[in-house]
Simulated scan of single mutants.
Amino acid sequence: MKVRKFAAIDIGSNAIRLLTHNVIEEEGKKTQFRKSALVRVAVRLGEDSFTKGEISEKNEIRMLKSMKAFKLLMEVAGVEDYRACATSAMREASNGTEIIEKIKKEAGVSIDLINGKQEAAIIASTDLKSLIKEDQSYLYIDVGGGSTEFTIFTNGKIKISKSFKLGTVRLLNDMVKQEVWDNLKKWIETNTDSLEKLSIIGSGGNINKLHKMSGRKEGQALSYIWLNAQYKFLDSLSYENRISELGLNPDRADVIIPAARIFLSAAKWSVVKKIYVPKIGLSDGIIKTLYHSKKKKA
């Protein structure tokens, strides 16, 4: 048996995450990927990027310090290799490339700027494939702070995928035009109209939290009825009460509502009553693609 360590850094619009995995290789057995640790820092880059067009000096400093800390944590943990990916907030910031170069120079961390299609492809490389049955269809939704990726699976394969600038941080800052909602509605209705046995698979921190709040066991789906009721309940509470009474983190207590709205809208337009939450995301996909890439080269 050989145990290897890999890490992923996900630089999102709402938070920055460092995920480490133990990758267990054993002759004659399937390689196992086990989460070792997760560090999440609430640096809301999207609020800068989407409203001002650039990352503020304050968040630039916080981001640089986070990357230095992540580098040290990876060294202490004995991480063999890592990959860092930045999504919409850094892509749309006028000083995004400049900050990435600074981080590489001062923190020694290289960052890849990825687009929506690349993000969807990385996520699709996770355990998602093992959940998809060939005789059913799925609408996979990954809700982020700056954008949401939609992918349709039929016959066990990707039929079509599209990224929409419809994220929780954008919605909080009232930066999503009705046209975006209309385009999403049309896209979902057009691409799901002929599909039978359709279910939704959701990913992202917000739907994971909602699933945990529901008290359902792992593998049990959220119903549209429950999610709609929970959305209305959360919306009826003040931001402060969501933190004090429900125990939500301050950076989760606001974005969880627009996230629920996105899932509810998609479920309504695709006429789906169940949402499965396998708790996988970009970080998991980064580690999987990194490992298989290294194995192929070897």
Rank of each mutant, 00 (worst) to 15 (best):
K2L: 12
V3N: 12
N14Q: 07
A15W: 01
L18T: 07
T20V: 12
H21Q: 15
N22E: 15
V23M: 09
I24E: 13
E26S: 13
G28N: 10
K29L: 12
K29N: 13
S36I: 04
V39P: 06
V41Q: 10
V41I: 12
V43G: 00
R44C: 14
E47M: 03
K52Q: 15
G53K: 09
G53F: 11
E54I: 05
S56C: 08
E57Q: 09
E60L: 00
R62S: 15
M63P: 02
M67R: 02
K68I: 14
A69E: 11
L73R: 14
V76M: 12
V79E: 01
E80W: 05
R83T: 01
R91G: 08
I99A: 00
G108S: 04
V109R: 08
I114L: 03
K117F: 12
Q118K: 08
E119Q: 10
E119D: 13
A120E: 03
I123F: 13
A124Y: 00
K129D: 13
E134F: 06
Q136G: 08
I141A: 05
E149C: 09
F153R: 05
I158K: 15
I160A: 15
K165C: 05
K165L: 11
L171Q: 13
N173A: 12
Q178E: 15
E179T: 14
W181N: 03
K185M: 07
T190P: 01
L195K: 08
S199G: 11
N208S: 14
K209T: 13
G215R: 08
G219L: 03
Q220R: 10
A221E: 10
S223N: 04
A229G: 11
Q230M: 13
F233D: 10
F233R: 14
S238H: 06
S238W: 03
D251R: 00
D251Y: 06
D251N: 10
A253H: 00
A253W: 01
P258Q: 10
A259M: 11
I262A: 03
F263E: 02
A267F: 07
K268S: 14
V272H: 02
I275C: 04
I275A: 02
V277M: 02
V277F: 09
K279A: 14
K279G: 03
G281A: 07
I286G: 02
K288N: 12
L290D: 01
K294Q: 13
K294A: 07
K294R: 12
K297D: 10
